[in-house]
């Protein structure tokens, strides 16, 4: 009897982990998209998720729009925010130092956080799950249907991004920029446009993550920083710049965190991900799945 509950518990933790991990994965992918084209780590990445969640609340709860429409509008709005950010802060500072770029994206993240607090205040918000709040039972574990939506959206994101990179002109051009921006410029790729697209895409993915996770974890104005930090942990763990590495590492990080919270101590669950991040940075900065030779980590 006890054995079954333990199994049930483990499955529960595992599932929670995969769900949260999917969000980390999406943040990590967001980091990578921008990093690959610009060598910038966008400290405002977590704010895209926060804005996605809160804007979704606005469209569903306040404006009472139907779910699919609200979702599309949310993604569009946050994408717009990403585009504005690139145009007004990144684009004008072309040849700035790394230190300046770090501070600029931090400034933008503070600004977003401030705007969110101005609009929504300090309280956490929630809106109803996509397909009702009745959980499914599975080997003694209760699984929220919204978690399945999170997994589904992550899968959709992975498929769409793969198609984008492998099949479309813009996707291929972006990979070329990541590889060698000078050469890309020479063959006529407009690197400027690619940078803009990378911010738009990255913001869109953040918005999706925020919109699907809010019914489970709620959302408030200051959630962005920790999400960004853990998403960055996932991106580094997976080898910065590596798309599939980020997805796997994000989910891995989520599972570790959830197992630790369930089996060891919930208070230190945030610390686990961060300690892992530090260890990877110190010991193997190319990431667990990354290629040491190809790692550019200590070069910029």
């Amino acid at each position: 009897m006890t054995k079954i509950t333990l199994t049930g518990q483990l499955i529960q933790y595992l599932f929670t982990g995969v769900t949260v991990g999917s969000i980390y994965a999406m943040v990590a992918v967001g980091f990578n998209i921008i990093y690959n084209v610009t060598d910038i780590i966008n400290f405002a990445q977590g704010e895209f998720v926060m804005l996605g969640g809160l804007i979704m609340v606005f469209f569903t709860v306040t404006a009472k729009l139907p779910l699919p429409l609200a979702f599309v509008l949310t993604v569009a709005a946050v994408t717009g925010v990403g585009v504005l950010m690139e145009r007004f802060t990144i684009n004008p500072l072309k040849n700035a130092s790394v230190l300046t770029m770090i501070i600029v994206t931090i400034a933008v993240s503070i600004l977003f956080k401030g705007i969110a607090m101005f609009v929504w205040g300090k309280d956490p918000y929630i809106f109803p799950p996509f397909s009702g709040s009745k959980p499914l039972f599975f080997y003694g574990a209760a699984i929220q249907t919204q978690a399945l939506w999170v997994l589904f959206m992550t899968a959709v994101m992975v498929v769409l991004m793969t198609i984008f990179y492998k099949k479309t002109r813009y996707g291929k051009a972006m990979l070329a920029c990541a590889d060698n921006p000078e050469a890309a410029r020479l063959v006529g790729i407009k690197v400027n446009i690619m940078i803009l697209i990378s911010f738009a895409l990255s913001a869109a993915i953040g918005a999706v993550a925020g919109a699907v996770i809010t019914p489970i974890s709620l959302m408030e104005y200051d959630r962005g920083a920790l999400l960004a930090l853990k998403g960055f942990g996932a991106a580094v763990l997976g080898g910065l710049g590596s798309f599939y590495g980020a997805v796997v590492a994000g989910i891995f990080l989520g599972i570790i965190e959830s197992m630790c919270a369930g089996l060891v101590s919930s208070g230190y669950k945030d610390a686990v991900a961060l300690i892992l991040l530090l260890l990877v940075l110190y010991v193997r900065p190319s990431g667990l799945f990354g290629n040491v030779e190809a790692s550019k980590i200590k070069e910029f």
Binding site: I40, I41, F43, V98, L99, I102, L226, L229, F232, G233, V236, D270, A271, L274, I275, L277, L278, L281, Y282, P285, I297, K298, E299, F300
Partner: peptide, 16 residues
């Protein structure tokens, strides 16, 4: 570590 990595490492340390 350099640049962004140092920033993130120190940020992580602070949160820990």
């Amino acid at each position: 570590l350099k640049g962004h990595y140092l920033a993130m490492a120190t940020l992580g340390f602070g949160v820990i």
